[in-house]
Measured scan of single mutants.
Amino acid sequence: KLETFPLDVLVNTAAEDLPRGVDPSRKENHLSDEDFKAVFGMTRSAFANLPLWKQQNLKKEKGLF
């Protein structure tokens, strides 16, 4: 399991300012399950079932792209 970080560490943070080991294209993977659901309004599995373009739009909207 990946290390999780608080939302404010990941949202609207440039790649070079992210904690070590965080993939800038997969910031959402480093949210706790609770934060993930609070941000996206759905579970990880529901998010994973969305088309890629919709996932990317949601990530942009939430500052996690």
Rank of each mutant, 00 (worst) to 15 (best):
S25A: 15
T13W: 09
W53N: 09
E3A: 10
A46M: 12
A48T: 11
P51A: 08
T4G: 04
L7F: 11
Q55L: 01
F40H: 00
P6G: 06
T43C: 09
V11K: 09
R20H: 15
A48H: 14
V9P: 02
V9Y: 15
L64R: 01
G41L: 11
L18D: 05
L31W: 03
D35L: 05
E16M: 07
R44K: 13
L7P: 06
H30A: 07
A48N: 11
D35I: 05
L31T: 01
D35H: 05
P51W: 01
T43K: 07
E28G: 01
P24R: 03
V39E: 03
P51C: 06
D23T: 03
E34N: 11
A15Y: 08
A15M: 10
M42W: 02
K27F: 04
Q55N: 00
G63T: 01
A14Y: 09
E16T: 08
L50E: 13
T13K: 09
R20G: 15
F5K: 03
S25M: 14
G21V: 07
D17V: 02
F65L: 14
D35S: 06
L58E: 04
D33L: 07
K1L: 12
P51L: 01
L64A: 01
L7W: 08
G63Q: 05
E16I: 10
N57R: 14
A14W: 06
D8G: 09
E34D: 11
N49I: 11
K54M: 14
K1F: 10
T4I: 14
L64E: 02
L2V: 13
Q56T: 13
T13V: 14
F65I: 09
A38G: 08
F47T: 07
N12V: 08
L58Q: 04
K60T: 11
L31R: 01
L50R: 00
E61H: 09
Q55E: 00
Q56C: 11
G21C: 09
V9Q: 09
F40W: 01
Q56A: 11
K62I: 10
F5R: 02
L64C: 03
G41H: 13
L64G: 02
P6W: 03
F47A: 00
E34M: 11
S45T: 12
G41I: 03
D33S: 09
K1I: 12
E16F: 04
E61N: 09
R20E: 15
V11A: 11
V39A: 09
S45G: 12
L58C: 06
K27Y: 04
P6Q: 05
G41V: 05
F47E: 00
L31N: 01
N29T: 07
R26C: 11
S25N: 14
D23F: 03
L52F: 11
F5N: 02
F40G: 00
F47P: 00
E61S: 12
